[in-house]
Computed example of a mutant assay.
Amino acid sequence: MSTEGKKSVNIIMVDDHPIVTEGIKSLLMDHPCVDVLATFNHGLPCLPFLASHNVDIVLLDISLPDVNGIDLCLQIKSQNPKTYVIALSNHAERSIIVSIMQNGASGYMLKNSPVDEIKKCIINVLKGKLAFTQAVKEIIEKPALNQFKKPPKITKREKEILALIDSGKTSMDIAEILFLSLSTVETHRHNLFQKFGAKNAIELLKLVKEQVVI
């Protein structure tokens, strides 16, 4: 592991799994230019330590007994903006990865990642780059399923009913205006709710305006 001529890279670990902590610590301590200053099995105690020590990198778990790692990341970056935070977690959900990155993390590693990938992530973060292990890259790059989801198709009659709902008309009003039975209007409304996954008329109109031009 190259550290760009830096004498020592100071790291702390915040993780409540001793096996993981000791394993990563042993891995990092094998390098002469890396110093694991401390390990914490709870999140909040690391904050006063960071306030009184020069720490380059925090390896941070997401699930901690006393605080959510995503929230803690934001606290760490607010208190120590020059300290890098790398998430080290078992969570492989895209939303979690995105959330902690939005809170200031510089990288995300899965705990089962190969040793070389973990080392590479640390090097890249020290160079000012965002760093992810390969599995995390694949999760991030894979588009959300609804990204390419086509908007629901709506019929001419449904468009008419939507326009009337948007103008504040009740089902009874719509039935009279369109010369339909009340049950027919209610059936159309029910079908529209299902197509857009809406729970009520307000949500339905919002979703329609986001996805379809009436």
Rank of each mutant, 00 (worst) to 15 (best):
N124P: 03
L59F: 06
L72E: 12
S95I: 10
Q75L: 14
V67L: 13
N124S: 15
D66G: 07
V58A: 07
I100E: 02
Q79A: 11
N103S: 10
D66Q: 08
I118F: 10
N112M: 14
Y84F: 12
N124R: 06
Q75W: 09
P81W: 05
G107I: 02
K111T: 10
N68P: 06
I100S: 05
S89V: 09
L59N: 05
L110K: 08
K111P: 12
Q75D: 13
K127E: 14
N103W: 03
G104N: 09
T133A: 07
I86N: 01
R94I: 14
D71H: 08
P114T: 11
V125L: 00
D61N: 11
K111E: 10
I76D: 08
C121Q: 04
K77L: 03
I76K: 13
A87T: 14
V125K: 07
S63E: 00
T83W: 02
L64Y: 03
I76G: 02
I100P: 00
K82G: 00
A92I: 07
L88D: 08
K129P: 00
G107K: 09
N103D: 04
Y108K: 05
K111A: 10
L60T: 02
Y108T: 06
F132V: 10
L88P: 11
G128V: 05
K119N: 11
P65C: 00
